[in-house]
Design a protein around this nucleic acid. Sequence first.
DNA 1: GTCTATATCGCGATAGAC
DNA 2: GTCTATCGCGATATAGAC
Lengths: 217, 217
Amino acid sequence: MSQEPRTKGERTRARILDSATELFSRHGFTAVSLREIATHAGLTHAGVLHHFSGKEALLLEVLSLRDRNDAARLFPRLLDPEAPEPPPGERLRRLIGVIVRNSGTPGLVSLYARLSAEASEPGHPAHDYFVRRYARLRTEVAALLAALFDAAEPPVRADPSRTAQQLLALLDGLQVQWLLEPDAVLMEELVRDFLARCGLPTAGAAPSGPGPDPVSD
Amino acid sequence: MSQEPRTKGERTRARILDSATELFSRHGFTAVSLREIATHAGLTHAGVLHHFSGKEALLLEVLSLRDRNDAARLFPRLLDPEAPEPPPGERLRRLIGVIVRNSGTPGLVSLYARLSAEASEPGHPAHDYFVRRYARLRTEVAALLAALFDAAEPPVRADPSRTAQQLLALLDGLQVQWLLEPDAVLMEELVRDFLARCGLPTAGAAPSGPGPDPVSD
DNA sequence: GTCTATATCGCGATAGAC
DNA sequence: GTCTATCGCGATATAGAC
C-alpha cells in the first residue's frame, strides 16, 4: 500500500495515515479526535500537526490516496503515460466495478461525500483539489464516452463532455442516497440504466476483479 | 417569511434563526461560532442553546425551513392536502425553477450539500430527517414523472421511481460541481437534457416567478 | 417558561521550548 | 521532530433571576 519509507519522518507520517484511515473509516470524521489518532500512532496531537496542517488536511490525504487508486484503475495513463490503455468497453466495465468496490467501504465513501461538499465553500483548503479532480475526471470520462459513442451501433449523437458531467453527478448523488438507505438504492442498476438511456447498453456483469493496486505512493 | 410570533420565546427563536441563516450563508458553517450567532441575536451562547439543542440542530432548522419552501412550491399537497394541484407540466417547470432560484443562494446550497453528506453517517442527528426527505421526494417526483410519462407523445415506458432516484441524484451531484465551478456547470441545461433523454422535452423557459412563499412556519 | 451567568470538559489549532 | 502550554471553540450542566 505504501511506498517503503526511508526516513523516520516518512515512517511516522505513514503510521499517522494508517491510523487515520482506520479510525475515520470505522467511526467517521467528527467522532475521531486528533488526540486519538495521535495516541493510536504513538505520539501527541501536536506531533500529528507537525506532519499535517490540520485535521481536514489529514482527511484529504487519506481520501486522495484512495482516489488515485480508483482513477488509476480507470485511466492508467494518468499515472503512467506509458501504461497500456484498455479498450473503451473494458474501461466502462471497470468504472462500474469501482462502484461495486466502493460499496464495500461505506465509511470512506461517506467521508468523500462529506469532504467534497465542505470543499465547495470557496477558500476551503481542499477547494482547489476538488476543482482539479472534477476537471480531470470530466475530461477523462468525456474521452471515454466519446469513444463509446462512436463505436456504438448505431453511433450515438450526444455531447460527451456534458454526458460526463451528468454521469459524475449521478454517481455522487446516488452515493449519498445509498449511504442514507443502502437497500433502497441499487447503484449499479441505476447507473447501467442511465448508460442504456444514453445508447450504451452494458449487458455483462462488472468484473473489476481483485488485481493489484495500481497506485503505491 | 415567518409566522407572526406570539410569545417572547418565539420571537427570540426567530431572531436566532435569522441571525444563523445570515451568518451561515455568508461565512459558512465552520467559520461561524455559536457565540457570534448569539451576540448577533442579542444573547449569550447558552441562551441560544436553550432554544436549539446544538449548532448542528440550528443548521438543520435553517435548512429544513428552506426545504419546506421548495417542496411546497412543487408539491402543494404536502403542506395543505386541500391545495390545488397544478398540472404535471407546470410542476415540472417549477422544479426547474427551483434550480434556477437556488443558484441565487449558493451559501445555503452549499450548507445543504454539506449537511446531507454529514448526515449519511448513521447515528447523525439529522440522519432520519434526510432518510425521510429522500423517501418523500422520491415518492412525489415518481408520481410526477409517472403522470408525465403517461401524457407524453409517445408515452414513455420507464420506471418512474427509479427515474426519480436518478433525477434527484443528478440534481444533488450537479449542485456540488456547480458550487465548485459555477461557470463550468450549466445546471438547468444539463437537467433539461436528462429529461429529454427520458422522453420528456422541456422546451419553454422556467418561470417559477416571484409568487408568495408557500410556507410561512 | 425564558433566559443569564458561570464553570467545566475535550476539542482543533498555534507558539515556542527542547 | 516532538513536546508542553495556551487559546477559543462546541457542548454540558447547574444555579438562579425575571
